[in-house]
Design a protein around this nucleic acid. Structure first.
Lengths: 209, 209
DNA sequence: CATCAATTTAAACGCTTGTTTTGATCTGGC
DNA sequence: GCCAGATCAAAACAAGCGTTTAAATTGATG
């Protein structure tokens, strides 16, 4: 299976380089030489750079949303309605666990998610919304149920505040961690940071109660 | 003063285009033709594209931090120590007011700030930290005083959570607002969104009390 | 073993990028 | 009125980009 070998070598290299530098700043030549494959392989196997970018996202977002769905199923089956903290735990640990399980770096995906939001790549936003919109809406619906009495517009703004705090912080995890380690000498691990993030995000969502 | 006219025409065009598409995705040719000046003018007046990017940031960050400093001075002079909400108001309204006063679009600067964080431009991060680090540290110090009893590492993580929620949300304000308007028919203004953000961010910072 | 499609390779394509160069033009002080 | 220095303009520069082509290589099938 030398084909899928080339394909995954390209995906591995592209994933790392995109997360480090962004899409436009990463050339196909850098990707293919890092992957140790011929330059033309990207266009042969993926068609174009755009489609390579989408393939990189698909490879981590699909297991991410599947694990999140399974996690939510498991908790919903438990019976009573879910608490905000449980939903955040499902999102953070469940989703991330799927990546850790595959031996991949979770911070890298947070960086890619951050890039997907901020970079000027209309096709990427469209791709993600059309492919993973259902997962997002399910999560948002459950979270909304866990916050009764909140008017819908306020709820959605707070949902975006929460996502902003999450994606933004975790996508810069390494940089922030380095600063705090220098200033306080205390290293922070990703799980520890999620321990801090869950109650803070829950308080943000519940503000004023 | 035809020189400073050319300079500011370039800065105006670059500011808008950078905010729309990012730095790498905006060519000097697009900037100069939008500004109606010669291509070589950028290298003549700014030296390089890098220095143009820094000049764009300097032009809005300097009044931003000056207004924030004046706002903090005013409130500190009031006597008793500041509440979290007052500090957030100073940051959001004070800083933004300086831009609105000059007839500039505040969301554009939030987009630029978001880009500065996520894009692969080491020189920009270094430039901003070295030039505006003092303002940041003063604000962080006052905020820390308003949250007594919080251990420093947790405080700093929450500060980043708050900045993430703010920058991330406001930099995508137009996109989020469009979605909410479509789903609920209710348009949100920036001041209204800040009214929602202040208590939510305060709750995030105070979580667990 | 021959065949044929799938894959890999090297080379080149056309285009865009940031930057530099070389003159022309403008502007203010003597 | 003239000259020096600042500014502008047109053109070219080398380098890098994504993509395409066409030939070589591979590996499984009849």
């Amino acid at each position: 299976m030398s084909q899928s070998d080339t394909v995954s070598r390209i995906l591995d290299a592209a994933e790392v380089l995109f997360a480090e530098r962004g899409f436009t700043e990463t050339s196909l030549r850098t990707i293919t030489s890092t992957a140790g494959v011929n330059l033309a392989a990207v266009n042969y196997h993926f068609g174009s750079k755009k489609e390579l970018i989408q393939a990189v996202f698909e490879r981590f977002l699909t297991p991410f949303t599947e694990t999140l769905a399974a996690e939510l199923d498991r908790r919903v089956a438990g019976g009573e309605s879910l608490e905000v903290e449980e939903l955040l735990e499902s999102l953070y640990r469940g989703g991330l666990a799927s990546l850790v399980a595959e031996g991949r770096d979770p911070q890298r995906f947070m960086r890619l998610l951050g890039l997907a939001y901020t970079q000027y790549q209309g096709h990427l936003r469209r791709f993600i919304v059309s492919r993973y919109g259902d997962s997002y809406r399910r999560f948002a619906g459950l979270l909304s149920q866990a916050l009764p009495g909140l008017d819908p517009v306020t709820f959605y703004w707070r949902l975006y505040f929460m996502l902003g705090a999450t994606i933004f912080t975790l996508s810069s995890f390494d940089a922030i961690e380095a600063i705090l380690r220098e200033d306080f000498g205390a290293p922070s691990s990703l799980p520890e940071t999620l321990d801090r993030l869950v109650p803070a995000a829950a308080a943000l969502l519940r503000a004023g109660e």
